[in-house]
Nucleic acid binder design. Structure first.
Length: 527
RNA sequence: GCGGGUGUAGCUCAGUGGUAGAGCGCGACCUUGCCAAGGUCGAUGUCGUGAGUUCGAAUCUCAUCACCCGCUCCA
């Protein structure tokens, strides 16, 4: 992305964030207390939008399928579940920082080095009577000599100088000694500088069960789940036993998950609390790869159905070596966000890794029993795991449009319109009496509101000029507006009596429609 | 975590030490008429938070929180 394009997209993203707040889609969590890093609240319209997405996903993936069942697992997870899954221990990365360049490295990815370390205890500058005492070391390898180490050390100590005019070369090093080391990972391979001690970043939220549990009582430890998937694996046997279901079949779940992200970024994209929509689709080992491809296609179709076109999605076939070791195939479905192409969903073929781990750790028999074939097996699984909040954000970014329109008087103006798919739109129809100081119009409008409310989310607005009200609805993506005028109440004769103006969001076209036809017409388009 | 930037009304922003501002939006009323700019009236601020300097701080200093950008990270 060029700088110019990045700047443009950054401005676009700011406008989207601003609209989300202004119209009540998304607010910063605890804003009046200064905000809570990485957490967001959905306002009235955001809550509607999210419900629409989740309900549609559930309908398509659970209710309309005989082979997929739903689950709603607890958010608090038993520590043994996450030990078995590898999240405890494995879900943290030891990191260290370079003392010289501040670069951050993963401690487990540093190649061990052998060479001579030159240690120093501090440095001073005689002319300005400045000095610092701090242990520091530089590793030299191969044919590098001690002068290189001294130069590096001076650069390090110069970081503590208050007078930046003093050249690092003018510093006097103190307490030099050398040491031979082998296979060390304490030094930055790039520049030989000493690193900080490796620090653990545990990415899970840990808590203690029981109101009187002690903080250092290890047995009371529980975790907020880092993914919804584990309860599906853990309850696999119960689901099988309580339902007459045969392979292949899936278990689906929508719910909150929590990760202590080091660096939350990009509005709601990387949040510490987020919602997932996951399916674990269990199958025979020989069907896994083909089903992975099938699920990828099905998921791409889903995004199209909710208004995210295929051409704004990218499929990343994760190459060997970058996938989790147990995965034979993984696709990432990515969307072109203004801040870059980023992952919405992963479709991963996980083999039977998870069930195997839970069988081992629980020491319970959780195999699937195939009565007909007379065999027991741990099925393989394909996991389409979608980010709900990320999908919402993609829908918002995709819907946002600034349209330049030329008005009657030839002047150009900008119309901000959210082109949500009508199925997803938070408000389906706005009911607008042309004037609010005419009781007959208001009364008729209230009747139409009452007529439609049981079937869809309706908004009633009688303030301001009619054009302004249309634009307000455009900004929140309401696909239809119904306007009640004097013809509706029979002022122009019986032919137009009980008809209204129906205005469509995207085209801004208007048509006259009988009130009695409204419900069916709208339901056909907003479900 | 590092570096840079930002934080003032609902939104966008002006305000470089001396009375807190503008535009838009919002609310009420008027308006027989359909794509935001007709009229009248009105409400709104711990100037992100906390400390310090000062007779006096939105403004200067320090700390802190949040957001944005670039690194880094993302099982």
């Amino acid at each position: 992305m060029s700088n110019e394009a990045a700047e443009k997209n950054s401005v676009l993203m700011e406008k989207i964030v601003s609209l989300c707040k202004r119209r009540g889609f998304i607010f910063q969590s605890a804003e009046i207390y200064g905000g809570l890093n990485g957490c967001w609240d959905y306002g009235p319209l955001g809550a509607e939008l999210k419900r629409n997405l989740k309900e549609y996903w559930w309908r398509k993936n659970v209710q309309e399928r005989e082979d997929i069942l739903g689950l709603d697992g607890s958010i608090l997870n038993h520590q043994d579940v996450l030990k078995a899954s590898g999240h405890v221990g494995g879900f943290s990365d030891p990191m260290c920082d370079c003392l010289l360049s501040n670069a951050r490295l993963r401690a487990d990815q540093i190649d061990p080095q052998t060479g001579t370390v030159y240690w120093f205890t501090g440095a001073s500058h005689a002319e300005s009577e400045w000095s610092v005492e701090k242990e520091y070391g530089v590793l030299t390898t191969g044919n590098e000599d001690e002068n290189k180490a001294r130069k590096t050390a001076k650069q390090f100590y110069a970081k503590f100088l208050s007078d930046k005019q003093i050249s690092p070369k003018k510093l006097e090093l103190a307490g030099e000694r050398s040491e031979e080391v082998a296979e060390t990972t304490q030094f930055n391979p790039e520049n030989g500088s000493l690193l900080t001690e490796a620090r653990e970043f545990n990415l899970m939220f840990k808590t203690h069960m029981g109101a009187s549990a002690d903080d250092d009582d290890e047995s009371s430890v529980a975790y907020l789940r880092p993914e919804t998937a584990q309860s599906i694996f853990v309850q696999f046997k119960n689901v099988v036993d309580s339902n007459r279901i045969k392979l292949p079949f899936g278990i689906a779940q929508i719910g909150k998950s929590f990760r202590n992200e080091i660096n939350p970024r990009n509005f709601t994209f990387r949040s510490r609390e987020f919602e997932q929509m996951e399916i674990e689709y269990f199958c025979r080992p020989e069907d896994g790869l083909a089903l992975t491809d099938e699920w990828l296609e099905r998921r791409l179709t889903f995004y199209e159905e909710i208004g995210i076109p295929r051409e704004h999605l990218h499929v990343l076939d994760i190459p060997d070596g970058e996938r989790a070791h147990y995965s034979q195939k993984t696709y990432d479905i990515e969307y072109e966000f203004p801040f870059g192409i980023q992952e919405l969903e992963g479709v991963a073929y996980r083999g039977n890794y998870d069930l195997t781990k839970h069988k081992e750790h629980s020491k319970k028999s959780i195999e699937y029993v195939d009565q007909e074939a007379g065999e027991k097996l741990l099925p393989h699984v394909v996991e389409p795991s979608a980010g709900c909040d990320r999908t919402i954000l993609a829908m918002i970014c995709e819907a946002y449009e600034e349209e330049t329109i030329t008005g009657d008087k030839g002047k150009e103006e900008t119309r901000i319109v959210m082109r949500f798919d009508p199925k997803m739109a938070p408000i389906k129809v706005a009911v607008l009496p042309l004037l609010k100081n005419k009781p007959e119009l208001v009364e008729k409008a209230r009747e139409i509101q009452a007529l439609l409310t049981p079937f869809m989310n309706v908004s009633y607005d009688e303030t301001a000029a009619i054009g302004r009200r249309y634009r307000r609805q455009d900004e929140v993506g309401t696909p239809f507006c119904v306007t009640i005028d004097f013809d509706t109440i029979g002022e122009s004769g019986d032919e137009l009596k009980d008809t209204v103006t129906l205005r469509e969001r995207d085209s801004m076209k208007q048509e006259r429609m009988a009130i009695s036809d409204l419900r069916e017409f709208l339901l056909d388009r907003v479900r």
